[in-house]
Simulated scan of single mutants.
Amino acid sequence: MMGKLLYEGYSSGKYDFAVREKFAQANIYAKNSQSILSKATGFINVYDFTLNPYRGCQYGCSYCYAAAFSPNSKMRDDWGKWVIVKANAAELLEKELVKWYQSNSRSPSIYMSSVTDPYQPIEAQEKLTRQLLEIMIIYKPKLVIQTRSPMITRDIDLLQRIKHLRINMSILTGSERVRKDFEPMSPSIKARLHAVKKIKQQIDPWKGYVPKISVTVTPLLPTFPEEQADFINSLAVADRVVIQEFHAQNQGRSLIASTRQEALTLTKKYAWWYDNEQQSYHQFKQQLHELLTGVEIKEGKEGFTYE
């Protein structure tokens, strides 16, 4: 059996992959993958496949469960400071979609992405996600894009050509102070909301397909009471809002979806919310229902379906 691949900077001796470049404070590596479509399991098992153009994520959010799937413990501890570019992703996607249609008459459903952000900063240079969208226009899967990046608006010209598309924009709090604590390297709340509005405004239903749009408030982070109503009202731009609490705490196992210790430590700063998290969660959910008439409110796994 082949041993684990080693990366420069995370190996005490020889390594298999050198740092290709430094991009926005992250080590960038590039490698060819064996496959690009992975069988969807667990939380998103309603899909046929997950698709992750990159491994690792420059946003490095404190709560992100995906850190558990890092190549080794050192890279897990350095979550946000490295990215592996799957250099042959576009070539693989076309091959794997051709193979799918050889034995299936229906279109596959794809969730992009489950353990990375397809529009993290390196995408501005690589345009790997854009290449994948160009292929999906041809092969017509049912697609969900999960991101927290306004960069998605760059691809409006392609997005409007995908008939079955849902865009999930992650916005976990209505308070910039909270965002800067839990996810300091991520885009602002204002920029994300503007991106959703731009998509809705610029996709003409007479000239293209209008995507379904969700705002995923998952996991739900604190929003200061004086900012809650304005935040919730701003979510009316979506047709669905999804809420969810933190994942369970990691009990010593590495390869499970769990909330990282960095986020759990931060919760002490927000004791006014987390000392009674269940009550905070239910009060927020109640406000969603009261203020967002005409918007679908879903919780947890149920909210991550395409339909």
Rank of each mutant, 00 (worst) to 15 (best):
W79N: 11
W100I: 03
A90Q: 12
Q58Y: 00
E96R: 13
P53N: 09
P71N: 10
V83Y: 01
P53E: 03
Y101I: 12
K86I: 09
K95Q: 14
N72D: 15
Y101R: 14
I110S: 01
R106F: 07
D78L: 04
A66V: 03
W82I: 00
A90N: 14
Y65V: 00
V85C: 11
A66L: 05
Y47R: 10
D77C: 00
N104R: 10
L92Q: 10
F49K: 08
V83I: 14
N88K: 14
L51M: 08
M75I: 03
K95C: 02
C57L: 05
D48V: 01
S105P: 00
V85D: 10
C61H: 06
N72V: 01
E96W: 02
Y59E: 00
Q102V: 01
P53C: 05
L97N: 08
E91I: 12
L97K: 10
C61L: 10
F69W: 10
Q102R: 15
S70N: 12
E91R: 15
P53H: 02
G60Y: 02
L51N: 03
Y47M: 05
K81A: 09
L97I: 07
K95G: 03
K99S: 15
N72K: 04
N88L: 14
F69Y: 15
F69K: 08
I84N: 04
N88I: 11
Y54W: 12
N88Y: 12
S73L: 13
I110L: 08
R55M: 11
W79R: 11
I84C: 06
